[in-house]
Nucleic acid binder design. Structure first.
Length: 896
RNA sequence: GGACUCUUAGCUCAGUUGGCUAGAGCGUUUCUUUGACGUAGAAAAGGUCAGAGGUUCGAGUCCUCUAGAGUCCACCA
């Protein structure tokens, strides 16, 4: 390949990726090639020769969004970094069947062609979605490749793969045997549109305006003497209940009042007539009723409200369902209301109550309403028999391991947040009434086969049995027939196994890659996923599933607003990759981003990334040109001037800095360092100097080091350059991390002095150009007793573009630069130096202010006593230098 | 009600256990058609680190309070 004059990512990215993918680079080294002596269970993860990380599986049939772009930029830079360090690296890619999400998409597609899910059996639907997913599949994987993920594609794990399902079944069986799983009839969060239950975590609570209605429930006289109590409160003939859901009154089982509420004390035990029905219900005392809220009396509907369900349990109330699974009123509500939707029913009930004088008042309120996180439908708490996991022990175990700091969190604050969550964790409903997912391997006893043994066994057979033959609707065991539960698992139940299934962990031999080095994912799924992986990992393996957790925040739009389709501010990562290249995107999205923070993102940062790629491209092109032009190519590698010592020192510092940043997950800082080293140091100073020296072996070596260090963050362009350079061989992706470079530190410091001298020349020239006696042409430089300048006259001349740099021969003239330890003059006319007077005066003032600050510090005896000696010494030196500088500046002033 | 995070340049953000004159990118201004790069080079302007106390020789950094922004969990008849 040849270097084009500018960086054109489109011309090489896909080809480069194919090269990587067809090599063994993405795969972990075979176990036999890794020295087993270096691996033991006890050794810390840092020292083990493996590095493992798994990809949070993107939806198999979806497209990547900006969050995936960030995920892959983060994970892949870690993977490539540790690969370069020589670890056997395994980045396992994944694809998610995305149970509910995919189901919603599929059901919508079905409805679009005029069909309903209810026309098909569960098994038919499963088969149809399977085909649907296969048709849609592929884009995601191509997009992951386009982002440069160096993952082991051979090991791609789909969440419905056979090994995933069998592992999930194993866990379920163990939990069933250990008594962690139970079937219970409880109120569950239920989406009436999609007709499925959810875990608490999948419900979105939104504050909404609503009404609190006061209803009059009339007291009925059931006393034997036929008269109401004579106490003054009970001269009333009714009790006012406050409700936001009048339509559920058909299911009311009681009216609760607070036992300490004096208003209602004497009413406890009485009964009231339930409006619109012929039923009566009791007034019961319960702490749940808040005397401060509404009328202080609350109707209790155990089958349709979580709190009421608990009240009902305490008072042995009946759970009477009045709303169906699909959100319509049941026949029990009577012909007038039966079959209406809850909204229709509410309107009609209110109208009827008003006409009957039962609706007394209404108040505008704001209350939080539970919604389906996917379709936004209001969640209907519904009484259902479901499979639950008793989470108490799981959470307790997880908390104890977390408190022992076995997992370090980035950001650290999330550890506390997670413990806080686990401490209040309720039992976990894992049943979903959607066809797309892993079938629950439980079968219910339904009858007997026509054999004698069946009849014999039937009574003693358990109600439910575990069996993995979920491809069958019915099974027969010992003559007893069982039917499969048609529900599927909550996807978080199966995905909590992700670190275990992706590392091929087994009971027999574990896995050298388990626990994972790091789990990188979005902070928004800390509870849903990270918490569950920890609980499950500990339950199955006894070990935490990962040692580090890195959580990234949301990627917001350029104004800091959340991206959403409805707002139209969604940024598509693939468009940016297409426009500026994959590396530019990666640099742009990592830039200025820190753990756990939701931060803005814009195209500008990607453009800046593209510019860095272009810079590196041209740096490489220039060096290649010099190599091509050179006649003698057998020079020995060594530094031959101070800019070379300096750049070696800087690259070495960069290497260490990047190592440190990566081990503490400070990606943005690593990127920042790479930027400034490539651009400000290597290109602007070193390469400029090398235009005079052209020390080819050193140029080549330093460029190689930079390419390797930058590779984790900008893999395509660095690899392309590597493969284009004439002297390099093999692939960059599998090169060893650079060894320390040799340099003379004193010489490196000398170069810094030269840089500040050159900088001062440039600053003064720039100032003179804009003053009233504007400088027409660049003046010569004169030096007095200054070996740094005399020894490097050529370099100074080149870097400042001055026509000449020569000795003043004992007769200085022009402007003397205000640099301590330097004697440099700009040979300008007296008019020009006059015009510089003002600038000089400003300079004296500002140095004076700095001097004052330092002197004040030294006057403080506590500072001299208590501050570290080196700081005091530095302050002392600073005072000396600034004093000298001021006196010289003043001298200059008088000369002028 | 409980928990967490944030407030630093016009914008987006760094700033590790407190320590030299608080940094970067983008934007702005001036200069340069210079040899790889105009997707460039050289230089500049721009900050009472939200506010008030406190600890300390020393606070953007630690503590307390106040104000504002945001997130999560629980509850809300």
């Amino acid at each position: 390949m040849k270097f084009t004059s500018s960086y054109e990512p489109k011309s090489f990215e896909s080809e480069i990726y194919q090269g990587w993918e067809s090599s063994p680079a993405f795969n972990p080294k075979p176990l036999t090639s890794v020295n087993p002596a270096t691996f033991s269970k006890e050794s810390s993860l840092k020292n083990r020769p493996f590095y493992s990380i798994v990809m949070p599986p993107p939806n198999a049939n979806g497209n990547l969004h900006i969050g995936h772009g960030l995920t892959i930029a983060l994970e892949d830079s870690l993977t490539r970094f540790y690969r370069l360090l020589g670890k056997s690296t395994w980045y396992v890619p994944g694809a998610d069947h995305a149970g509910f999400e995919t189901w919603v998409v599929y059901e919508r597609a079905l409805e679009a062609v005029g069909h309903s899910r209810f026309e098909y059996s569960r098994d038919e639907l499963y088969a149809r979605v399977w085909d649907f997913v296969q048709e849609q599949r592929g884009n995601m994987e191509l997009q992951v490749r386009a982002l440069g993920a160096s993952c082991a594609w051979n090991d791609l794990t789909f969440t419905l793969d056979e090994n995933v399902v069998s592992r999930v079944y194993k866990t379920f069986e163990k939990m069933w045997n250990d008594g962690y799983i139970y079937r219970g009839e409880k109120l569950v969060n239920y989406c009436p549109k999609h007709e499925t239950a959810f875990a608490d975590i999948e419900v979105e609570h939104i504050d909404e305006p609503g009404f609190l209605w006061d209803l009059k429930y009339e007291l009925v006289n059931e006393d034997s003497d036929g008269f109401l109590d004579s106490s003054p409160e009970c001269h009333k003939e009714y009790i006012v209940v406050s409700t936001t859901r009048p339509e559920t009154l058909f299911g009311d089982q009681a009216v609760a009042v607070n036992p300490s509420d004096p208003r209602y004390k004497s009413l406890v035990g009485k009964r009231v007539k339930l409006p619109l029905t012929s039923r009566t219900i009791p007034i019961i005392p319960d702490e749940h009723a808040d005397p401060e809220y509404g009328s202080g009396a609350v109707k209790i509907t155990p089958a349709h409200d979580f709190d009421d369900f608990e009240v009902g349990k305490r008072h042995n109330l009946e759970n009477l369902r009045v709303i169906s699974d699909n959100g319509h009123m049941l026949p029990v509500c009577g012909d007038r209301y039966s079959d209406l939707t809850t909204e229709e029913c509410r309107a009609l009930v209110l109208k009827d109550l008003k006409e009957q004088g039962i609706l007394l008042d209404s108040h505008k309120i704001t209350h939080s309403v539970a919604h389906c996180y996917k379709c936004g439908t209001v969640i209907e708490p519904t009484l259902k028999e479901q499979w639950f996991i008793d989470t108490e022990k799981l959470a307790k175990t997880a908390i104890s391991h977390l408190k022992k700091n076995e997992i370090s969190f980035h950001p650290a604050s999330k550890q506390k947040v997670l413990i806080n969550y686990l401490e209040g964790l309720k039992d976990w409903n894992i049943s979903r009434q959607i066809p797309w997912g892993i079938p629950i391997p439980m079968f219910k006893k339904i009858g007997t086969a026509s054999s004698a043994t069946g009849k014999e066994n039937f009574d003693s057979a358990p109600e439910w049995i575990f069996d993995t033959r979920t491809n069958l609707k019915e099974i027969e065991i010992g003559g007893v027939l069982y039917a499969r539960d048609e529900d599927t698992f909550d996807t978080w139940f199966s995905s909590s196994h992700w670190p275990i299934v992706c590392t091929d962990w087994t009971e027999e031999s574990g896995s050298p890659f388990y626990p994972l080095n790091v789990m990188e994912t979005g902070a928004d799924i800390l509870f849903a996923w990270v918490a569950r992986m920890i609980m499950m990992g500990l339950y199955i393996t006894g070990e935490v599933p990962f040692k580090d957790v890195y959580l990234h925040g949301l990627v917001l739009d350029s104004k800091g607003k959340k991206m959403s389709k409805s707002k139209g501010n969604v940024i598509n990562p693939m468009e940016l990759v297409d426009k500026y290249g994959s590396d530019a995107f990666r640099l742009g999205i990592l830039r200025g981003r820190s753990a756990g923070m939701s931060q803005a993102f814009s195209e500008e940062s990607v453009i800046s990334g593209r510019n860095l790629c272009n810079k590196l491209w041209n740096v490489s092109r220039l060096i290649q040109t010099w190599v091509d032009e050179a006649e003698n190519k057998n020079d020995v590698l060594s530094t031959s001037n101070m800019s070379e010592d300096w750049i070696c020192r800087e690259i070495d510092a960069l290497r260490k800095k990047v190592e440190k940043c990566m081990s503490s997950y400070r990606f943005a800082e690593a990127v920042e360092e790479i930027y400034s080293t490539i651009w400000d140091k290597y290109a602007d100073w070193f390469l400029e100097s090398e235009k005079l020296f052209k020390n080819l072996p050193l140029l080549q070596k330093t460029l190689e080091s930079l390419l390797i260090i930058a590779h984790p963050f900008m893999p395509f362009v660095t690899e392309t350059i590597w493969q284009t350079l004439s002297w390099t061989s093999g692939m960059l992706i599998s090169q060893p991390w650079p060894a320390p470079l040799e340099f003379d530190p004193i010489s490196a410091e000398e170069f810094e002095r030269l840089m500040s001298a050159v900088g001062e020349v440039r600053r003064v020239l720039s100032a003179l150009k804009t003053q009233k006696h504007a400088l027409k042409s660049v003046p010569p430089i004169l030096y007095g007793d200054d070996s740094l300048i005399s020894d490097n006259a050529n370099l100074v001349k080149f870097l400042t573009r001055c026509p000449s740099v020569s000795s003043c021969e004992g007769s200085p003239r022009g402007i003397r630069l205000a640099l301590s330890g330097r004697e440099i003059y700009l040979d300008v006319s007296s008019e020009i130096s006059d015009s510089y007077r003002e600038t000089l005066e400003d300079r004296i003032l500002s140095v004076g202010r700095e001097l004052d600050a330092l002197e004040a510090r030294m006057r403080n005896p506590n500072y001299v006593d208590k501050a570290p000696a080196h700081l005091v010494e530095e302050t002392r030196k600073g005072i000396e230098e600034k004093t000298a500088l001021i006196s010289r500046l003043k001298q200059e002033l008088t000369v002028i």
